[in-house]
Amino acid sequence: MADRRRINGPVGQTNPPIYDTPQEKRIAKRPGDNAVRKIFLKTGVTPSASGSAYLEIDDPFAIRPSGTNLKLTCTVHGPRALPRSAPFSPHIILSTHVKYAPFATRQRRGYLRDSSERDLGVHLETALRGAIIADRWPKSGVDIIVTIIEGDQNRDSPDYDRDEGWDMMNVLSGCITVASAAIADAGIDCVDTVAGGVAALAAQDEKSQPSIVLDPDVASYHKIFAACCVAYLPTRDEVTNVWFKGQLPGADAMLYNKMVERSLVACRNANRVLIQSLSETINPGQNVS
């Protein structure tokens, strides 16, 4: 007699249906090297935190079922008084915590932070420390927690195993922008809003010459030679953090300076979205150009 209390699965192995597009139609080239992906940013998504923000980056030039999207959420807790046993500090103690969700990347992440996540936390703290007015809160602490819901990876690509961690540059750029929005939402005084931007030296295919592109979608390029992530204060025209990775042909200093300048262009684009999101938070229902 059949068991009517549950639906039994098939006896043998089965493969789920795959709805995909042909390889030649998956990737649509961007209109130019200066094009950046769309950014969605919203503050106040976590009412229990002092400040919070959600950031999502989508590539409108790529036609893929899976895509390479970036989804981040940030919560800020504080400023709050340090324990009495803590030594006196004339400025605020900044604590940053960056963690991938277990399902954020193709390779499943553990529950404990690995070396890459700790590196992201160190770079994020350096980028934010130059923007916060630390002496406003003596003997106080603030915790900034960034959770990466979806990493900037094409998880369905079989060739992505040879990736050398270039997606971490885009992740750090998003962490800087979303953390700056969450800090502003928490009401913490800053000298300026800090935004992140990335520029990379990449080749479109095997025959093309490498060129500098903004906000690179790693899966859309044949090879990436170098990448630069910059944290930038647009109003003060100051750089708070630079992370360069890769090797330039012939160690060209002019090419390095050009990559940093292009990264600043990406930072300004992200800062415009950041300012617009904060303006909409202050004046809800009003369109900000």
Rank of each mutant, 00 (worst) to 15 (best):
A182M: 05
A28M: 01
L201R: 08
R26E: 03
V273G: 04
C175G: 01
L120D: 00
E238N: 12
I57Y: 00
A179M: 09
V213L: 07
T105V: 08
V178N: 01
A200M: 05
R30Q: 05
T240A: 08
T75R: 00
I224L: 15
L264Q: 09
R262W: 08
E280G: 02
I132S: 07
Y100F: 12
I148F: 01
S157Y: 00
C267K: 11
D135Y: 12
A219C: 10
P60V: 13
L128F: 03
S116R: 08
L55C: 09
Q204K: 12
V11N: 08
Q209N: 11
T43L: 03
M169Y: 01
P79N: 15
D20I: 03
I176N: 13
K42Q: 15
V45M: 11
M259D: 11
E117L: 06
Y160D: 02
V194W: 08
G197R: 09
R84C: 02
D152H: 05
K25N: 05
I224V: 15
V288H: 13
A199M: 10
I144V: 15
V265S: 03
L172S: 01
N154Q: 01
A251S: 10
S211I: 15
A134I: 11
D119V: 14
V194H: 07
F61Y: 08
L94R: 14
Q153W: 00
T46D: 14
S116M: 07
S180L: 13
R109D: 03
M168V: 14
C74P: 02
V36N: 10
M168H: 07
A62L: 07
G246W: 00
E150Q: 13
I93R: 15
N15C: 10
P60A: 13
L233D: 04
T105E: 05
I145L: 09
G165L: 08
G51N: 10
S89F: 09
P83K: 12
P87Y: 06
L120T: 04
T75V: 06
T46G: 05
L128W: 04
R162P: 00
S211V: 15
A131K: 12
H91A: 14
Q23N: 06
K258Q: 12
L172R: 02
P87G: 11
P65L: 14
D189W: 00
V191F: 06
P16F: 08
A104D: 04
L233I: 09
G130E: 09
V230Q: 11
V288C: 07
G51S: 11
H97M: 10
D252G: 02
H123L: 14
I188P: 00
K223H: 10
A231D: 11
R129E: 13
K258S: 11
R109Q: 12
S220T: 01
V213S: 05
Y111Q: 05
Q276C: 13
A104S: 14
D252F: 02
G246M: 07
S289Q: 13
S115P: 00
D20F: 00
N283M: 14
S140E: 15
A2M: 04
T96S: 09
T193H: 01
G67I: 03
S277Q: 05
T105M: 05
V36S: 14
A181F: 01
I183T: 01
A203Q: 14
S220N: 03
E125Q: 15
A200D: 02
I39P: 02
